[in-house]
Nucleic acid binder design. Sequence first.
DNA 1: GCCATCACCC
Length: 534
Amino acid sequence: MPMSLPSPCSPLSEFLPSPSLSNHAVFLNNTRKLSCHKFSGLKLVFIPAASLPTTKSYPPETTVLQSPILGKKEQRLYPKEGEELKGLPMKEEEQESLDFDEKDSKFQVSDLLNAVKALPCKERVDHIVRVLDKEIGVLSISDFNDVLMALVTANESDLVLKLYSGLTCYSLEPNSWTFTIMVRCHCKKKDPSEAKRVLDQMMLKGFNPNVATLTTLINSFCKIGQLQNAFQVFEVMDRIGCKPNIQTYNCLLKGMCYVGRIEEAFELMEDIKKTVEPDIYTYTAMMDGFCKVGRSDEAMELLNEAMEMGLAPNVVTFNTLFDGYAKEGRPLKGFGVLKLMKQKKCMPDYISYSTLLHGLLLWGKVLAGLRIFKEMEGNGLEADDKLMNSLVRGLCRKSMKEIDLVEVAYQMFEKMKKRGFVIEHSTYALAIQALCVANKVDDAFINLLQMVRLGYIPRLIAINNVIRALCLGGKVDEAFYVLVLMYENSKIPSRMSYDLVIHELNRQERTLSACNVYGAALVRGVVPHKKPRR
DNA sequence: GCCATCACCC
């Protein structure tokens, strides 16, 4: 029986998350990173007026905006001593509410706000930065909203909260739009519960939220797996007669997939088809759901269905499939996806290539990976440090089974260093391990020294690998040097480390040295199994 | 006015 869309008449429990989540694996792959916002370079900080280095006095609760990126000392919000303040004269009641110590202070943002209002949303913050060294003063709630909105857009949630909490200081009453902004702000901070409280407050004041606001909140709950709360908001929507749109449904669909309730999500999708027109987001979300649980073929079927419906898959749609096949252990399927993608005139992007490449490397398809890497570079997409590290690690891992590859791996590793890529600890570790396996003892030794010089403390297993390789090659002095290097970096070698060195010293009949090493071990609280030969 | 999608993990 098809599941109907939740409404106040249908039992909510059908849509609520099961008490124990059936698919924990889903969560493992959902550590998402915050994307860099256009304005992330902007850092606006509040400085308590009380701490401002000025002879003018400000009310203790007053804070001013200051941007560290302005840098210059001259760019500030408060006037220089003796400087004439610009801006409109303050209204009587504002002066009253601000409770200035000096009533003749004029703290204005009117100029800023007027200029900001004239700008499109996205450019507002830049402008704020530019004119922030002018004084600030608040006119109306809608001006206030404009500043709040600009700051939310600029990912300055904390700043928004501070501004909002000072609202009453300026004798301003929040209006519908203020509440909407605050809901968004809390959602952006991944705190939908707080957003819900704002929503309740908003409705208590007689304002009705619209579909965009409610969808934001639903999405926020879904993103942290709180489907029950998401559906509660969905219910509110129905109650106030606000019609959900395709975005709303897509959020719920995604939420269901996120908590592993794939079948229900699929049923929901079928119902969406009956209610509203699904879009490519709907399909992509469902495909992602299938992919995340290892059902990429079904995702591919959905892609075909979407295309038959005349929906144009985008780069995200395809990238979802790359990831699905990669996780499933069928990374070569990615080549077919890549081909289809190009057929559909969809340009693969950085994520396409890196996902495919990671998948190939993960499953040992290193040569195929190299091919993709070259195609990627050929398309003008430069691999970043992380991807390069990953590629080299993949090559190293593979080269431990296919010794011939060790040269390719090591060349790439050295090329990375030359090009100035950051080499991660784990990359050094794997390179060293691969070099040991390939019996390139000197290179392994050199790289161990190099990584220590870079401030990495190698793990015992890496240390012992190198010590073992050195000892096997008779290079016991170098092996001993590794021990010393460890002391110097406050890392106590293991019993195994000492055993290897003592054993080789014994073999070379360097009894005195063996005794010294044995003694050194005891001093550090390690009792080697191997004893110096008498 | 404001709302929805994808990757790297060593």
